[in-house]
Design a protein around this nucleic acid. Sequence first.
DNA 1: GTCTATAGACGGATAGAC
DNA 2: GTCTATCCGTCTATAGAC
Lengths: 204, 204
Amino acid sequence: MNGPHGVGQGEADSRHRSDTRARIQQVAVELFTEHGYDGTSLREIAERIDVTKAALYYHFKSKEDIVASLVQDYADQMDSLIAWGREQPRTAQTRREVLSRYVDIVAKGDQVFRMLHQNQASANMLGSMKRRGDLFKERIEFLIDLLTEPDAGLPERVRAAMAIGGISVGWMLFASRADRSELVNAVTEIAGEIAELPCPRAAR
Amino acid sequence: MNGPHGVGQGEADSRHRSDTRARIQQVAVELFTEHGYDGTSLREIAERIDVTKAALYYHFKSKEDIVASLVQDYADQMDSLIAWGREQPRTAQTRREVLSRYVDIVAKGDQVFRMLHQNQASANMLGSMKRRGDLFKERIEFLIDLLTEPDAGLPERVRAAMAIGGISVGWMLFASRADRSELVNAVTEIAGEIAELPCPRAAR
DNA sequence: GTCTATAGACGGATAGAC
DNA sequence: GTCTATCCGTCTATAGAC
């Protein structure tokens, strides 16, 4: 399990590895987001960083391996959040904290997050990872569980889903234009309000 | 401009056309949603309905033309909604009505809506249509404009975005499992609350 | 670590018979 | 309207020199 390949390798053991690997990842994220996973060839990636296709295969054992290396960290953070949330009491404070931490993950993983959102249907992307649970949908369902009572009805669950979905869309639409911390605050605040429904209005 | 091709042809002039065209559309939507646009070959579509690739080319002049025929109706409805909204006074009632109509479009266009959401980054899909405005992002921005005052700040715009985004995600997650009209009501109701923020809580 | 060269497969699209 | 047969392009991935 040594050698240049291997998904789990963070920047930790960077004794003196060239930065080519990191440059591949950076360019890959950008192109996968812009043109889609299937719409991006290894040739394109290689050309952008001025190496050849074959060089990519020294650093990653396949195209899918490139994306896996990108997504691993994001998935781990989601799993940590879910695990943490399950150990907390089901209070309003916990729910706010879950949403806040989720926004942080989204904000921190920004580029990868956008890439995933834009490539949800790419069956080729993450074909192997998908078997361990749909990276997106399944984990979002778990978040919904954290935000609702076990016996919650449809409206409550829909409300939780909309809080989480709102975070995604809010971020995607404004991340490139607004001040980051300002956006984090606004999104977190509003998501919290959506989830809690402060006053159960008499409407309808 | 006659012959079998031509995007604009609804079911209106169906004197006695075979249903092959419609079956192609149906299968295409399903496969594009599941495996992505690039991940679906014309061979797959043809096999599913038990014709050959060449037959597809009798009904549609290209792969992209298939998807265009599907999306046209959805785009038109969005444009109608936006045009209608721009003529209305900027009242809370109008905003609720905009959201309600948007939910109806999503609910009615269900399958196409899902397909579009799952293939946002497929550059090949709708390459021609994109030039007339990004089908998704741009139109959602217009909806946000309808839901906010012209001088609205970031939080207000983010709030509107989250209401609309919440509709998408709420629908995507529950459409296959919940009762349709029940879901329409729940989503519409909650989106309205998000957009209006009934009581400006002193929280935080 | 990076290169050249190429294998091997599959994609969209077209021509022309029936 | 549907078929068979085929063209041509591009893709991932590998082999082996340097």
